[in-house]
């Protein structure tokens, strides 16, 4: 089976984790890892694994190797992505944006993949968004959600310098995603860093207030369980920590995300859910492309 060519832009934690996941993909062929620091761990690993390792940024890649990618994952920063998005669009390469830049439509694979498969730039919101929006949607498809609030707690060790320098982007982008993709009328997001050793697994709490009189416990519970399985199909370590709690028109859902341990250890569920979602989106797109070629 032929594969769709992809490249990774950014050689930090996310980029390197993506590299390890893409090695296993049956529909995607990783060709290059693009960074700016030749000494970075990510580029060093890329060279060792025999991928093209570019240390002159996206510009350098597009000048000489533009034919080596149909899709580029951007795992740099929101600020850099604004520039990258334009360059990739001009080169006719699809962008999967792992930063909170929000240039293209927000996508959560278990919720709205189909509607956005043709978009030339797809944004994956945030790790907290990937973990919690499926649940907001699961509640909302049964009983309309007036207000959804999520609290993402991640271990300090798994929050990189980009997240830390711009933590507002997390809360703002996630809140927007809760509304646009989750379907809640209003959304709010909170992020907490916990430095405990050994590091804690990523945990998320989702609070949903449903419309007055619309609560249907049994159906919501079934919908939540079904969604858990759906997300598990691409993030195996995603699970409910305990039974959801129903209280009046409020549903509280407790989640935990254990990472696959590809690049960073398993506590980095926040990293894993982002890269797993990125690969899932690219694979769906690739299947679509390959199917078209067959016709």
């Amino acid at each position: 089976m032929s594969k769709v060519k992809v490249a990774i832009l950014g050689s930090g934690n996310i980029g390197t984790d993506l590299m390890m996941k893409l090695e296993r993909s049956e529909t995607l062929e990783l060709t290059a890892v693009i960074g700016i620091d030749p000494e970075s761990d990510g580029l060093r690993r890329a060279r060792e694994l025999g991928y093209l390792a570019i240390d002159t940024g996206l510009q350098g890649f597009l000048e000489h190797h533009a034919d080596k990618a149909d899709i580029v994952f951007d795992a740099t920063s929101a600020k850099a992505h604004i520039r990258h998005a334009k360059m990739l669009k001009e080169a006719g390469i699809k962008a999967i944006d792992m930063t909170p830049a929000a240039r293209g439509p927000f996508v959560v694979p278990s919720v709205n993949m189909g509607a956005n498969i043709e978009a030339d730039n797809i944004n994956l919101i945030t790790c907290g968004g990937q973990a919690t929006i499926p649940m907001v949607h699961a509640v909302n498809r049964v009983s309309p959600v007036e207000y959804a609030e999520i609290v993402a707690t991640i271990s300090s060790r798994s929050a990189g310098p980009g997240t830390r320098a711009n933590i507002d982007e997390f809360t703002e982008t996630t809140s927007l995603g809760i509304v646009e993709v989750g379907g809640a009328k209003k959304g709010k997001a909170i992020i907490i860093l916990n430095p405990a050793e050994p590091p804690i697994l990523m945990r998320d709490t989702v609070y949903c207030l449903v419309e007055e009189g619309a609560m249907n416990e049994a159906k919501i519970l079934a919908s939540i369980r079904e969604m858990e399985k759906n997300v598990q199909s691409y993030v195996p370590g995603y699970r409910l920590r305990t039974e959801p709690i129903f209280d009046g028109n409020k549903v509280t859902i407790f989640l935990e995300v254990e990472g696959a341990g590809d690049y960073l250890p398993t506590y980095s569920g926040n990293l894993d859910i982002m890269t797993a979602a990125g690969v899932k989106v690219a694979e769906e797109f690739a299947k679509n492309q390959l199917a078209k070629q067959l016709v």
């Binding site: 609290v151 707690t153 860093l193 430095p195 709490t205 305990t242």
Partner: peptide, 10 residues
């Protein structure tokens, strides 16, 4: 740590 009130119910 501070802010983890959701852990209380959990």
């Amino acid at each position: 740590v501070g802010g983890q009130e959701d852990m209380i119910v959990d």
